[in-house]
Design a protein around this nucleic acid. Structure first.
Lengths: 223, 223
DNA sequence: CCGTAAATGTCGTCG
DNA sequence: CGACGACGTTTACGG
């Protein structure tokens, strides 16, 4: 990994065209050839970048300035014109062991599958990830009245309502299942989603992740 | 901006839980307090990060190791346990002038507003960003037959069709405008979106950004 | 400050 | 390899 702090101008041409006027920035050149240009704010997003695979060439400009030219086989090009180098160092980082992540949405679905009564009294699980032609329904439940299709989301927006609506349309064409009711279960439901769901007779249920997890493994709260 | 190359372990607890086992990584501490941890690959995405606003504290661990503790008011926490520092430097980058981008959706909308006939013979512009209760319609056009609502996207997916469908439902409730036809104009239309649009009588038009720009400023192609 | 839509989104997964 | 959906999406913009 090479770290460059330099006064530079940056030109990107590819999926769009972007220009960064001259200023001091961090230029990060990674072992896989990828390059990104960072300002002194916004942790996550670089000002400009080039994803691997790409090739890096270093040239001398007409006025003696250094030009870094990064090209990708996709026809994208990033040109960094360096007028002043304030820092330049290289480092060997070795292998990255990778991270282990404990996802929330999958966990939420698992917990709701084990505690379906949270979504309504008398509800029992038929199956998780019920397959349909247009994709799997997160949870399929039933009670004395009939079948319920559940869409599980961490943050439910309009797209979640639309998704569930498409599933319900399809499921309700099956005379054995119909009528199927819809439930949108999420940690947070956006107002627009709540309104649209209301118009379509879909219930919105806000679920408490911590409470579900505590109910699943009561011992955890002791630590 | 502070650059740290260090052997470290990273723990994130917040919207999910993630652990990075000990390895050598780049730790980037920016002027706005944000922190991100990068491996030697993947230009764009940090292994772990904390967005502003957040606060950074530096502590000494039980075995004398340095611990960077980053906390956000949203209840997220990032803990970096440093066992060995290989590089440590700070740099003043000054102000970032910001970038100018060309070729984003707004640009596409502007060009289509100036050349509506691209979307259909005889079409003329009524207005851009036509306001409705559920948000602005990108373009409202008319021809001899009636009114056309246009949703402009760079890449049109199902959500674009849904968005336009909502607008059409609303516009068609207005007896003065109705009947309003729908057009989805995009540089790329996903198959699923094309199918759904077809079912709903919405036309999909693939637009050529370069051609639109050339027609807008013919001189450009000479350079 | 909240809500909404765009993004050079990026990243995994599955057909 | 392409389509599709999730993401600790992040980021910008408007009420």
């Amino acid at each position: 990994m090479r770290l460059l702090i330099a006064r530079c101008r940056v030109d990107y041409a590819g999926r769009l065209a972007a220009v960064l006027p001259e200023a001091v920035r961090l230029i990060l050149i990674k072992a896989d050839g990828s390059v990104c240009v960072h300002a002194d704010d916004r942790a996550y997003k670089p000002l400009n970048w080039m994803n691997p695979p790409c090739t890096l060439r270093e040239e001398a400009g007409p006025a003696g300035e250094r030009i870094l030219r990064v090209d990708s086989p996709r026809g994208e090009g990033l040109t960094i014109t360096v007028s002043e180098v304030l820092h330049d160092s290289s480092h060997d980082l070795g292998v990255e062991p990778g991270s282990t992540k404990d996802g929330v949405e999958a966990e939420l679905q698992r917990l709701l599958a084990e505690q379906p009564e949270v979504l309504g009294a008398g509800l029992r699980l038929i199956r998780r990830e019920h397959p349909t032609a247009i994709g799997p329904v997160d949870l399929l439940l039933r009670d004395a009245v009939g079948v319920v299709a559940v869409e599980v989301k961490r943050h439910a927006g309009i797209d979640g309502v639309e998704q569930l609506t498409r599933y319900l349309e399809l499921l309700n064409r099956d005379p054995i299942l119909a009528p199927v009711r819809g439930v949108l279960a999420a940690q947070q439901v956006r107002p627009q989603a709540r309104t649209l769901a209301g118009e379509r007779g879909i219930a919105c249920i806000v679920v408490d992740y911590a409470a579900l997890r505590d109910a699943d493994e009561p011992g955890d709260r002791l630590f």
